[in-house]
Amino acid sequence: MATVCTGRIETLLRERGPDGAGRLIVYLTAGDPSLEDTEKLLAAVDRGGADLIELGVPFSDPIADGVVIQRASERALRAGTTLSRVLARLPRWRQAVHAPIILFGYYNPVLQYGLERFARDLAGAGAEGALLVDLPPEEAEPCVAAMRSQNLDLIFLASPTSSDERLELVSRFSTGFVYIVSVPGVTGERAVLSGAVAPLAARIRRFTNLPLAVGFGISSPEQVRQAQALVEAAVVGSALVRTIEESYREHGGQAIERFVRWLISGTGVQFTMETQRHKD
């Protein structure tokens, strides 16, 4: 990669929070349950204290996702969510939150939208970048070029199955941060933080100074703190999406705001591991 941009995300994740804690990244699916609700939900997670928001673009065949995010994608698609509708609303959504936003999704919708057009509209909306789960570095040159031309970050994944050669490649291509997949598998909540994270983080640090974030399976304040002790940021996705599925209709954005606050502080009673897990 010829140019290295130190963007807003990298700076943000490198700094600790006001109380010395690591950063919290949250994921939610755009259009779940509707595009109108997404604006309220973004504001709710922002008020709750999320440092960075991954906004999922629903796809018909989300093969990297577990059942919770699959269901969210289905709801969002039924509500008519498409990449172009997300990008059309993104400028307004971005205005409504403090936290930076990156899009999270699959490659084909972006490819069909047009790589240059995608990057231009993403930058125009004030978003910071994207992560495309089925786009490994080997296939990413055209997308990287389009994103770099707009000074946007394109984030790549590192997995416990990645060889050192692959971690070097991922580190070279990624900007903003490197996203560590905590366990081989699809997205979804898991009872304990995988022991694979610490050694994987140590291996990646040999190749890059970029901040690291760990996700896939983090669903409680304890796991958030464990992850933040190892790397700069923790990502919570499925647990938040399921809280939206279970509580948003009845309790509105406040319930989602409280959930994010609970993830950060560990207080706020109503979200315990037991009540969260009863449907799994």
Binding site: I63, A64, Y107, V133, D134, L135, P136, E138, E139, F156, L157, A158, S159, P160, T161, S162, S163, R166, V170, V181, P184, G185
Partner: peptide, 14 residues
């Protein structure tokens, strides 16, 4: 053709 899979599957396909 090519190889458009998530990072976790890159090592197994290689």
């Amino acid at each position: 053709g090519g190889r458009y899979v998530s990072e976790t599957l890159m090592h197994p396909v290689e």
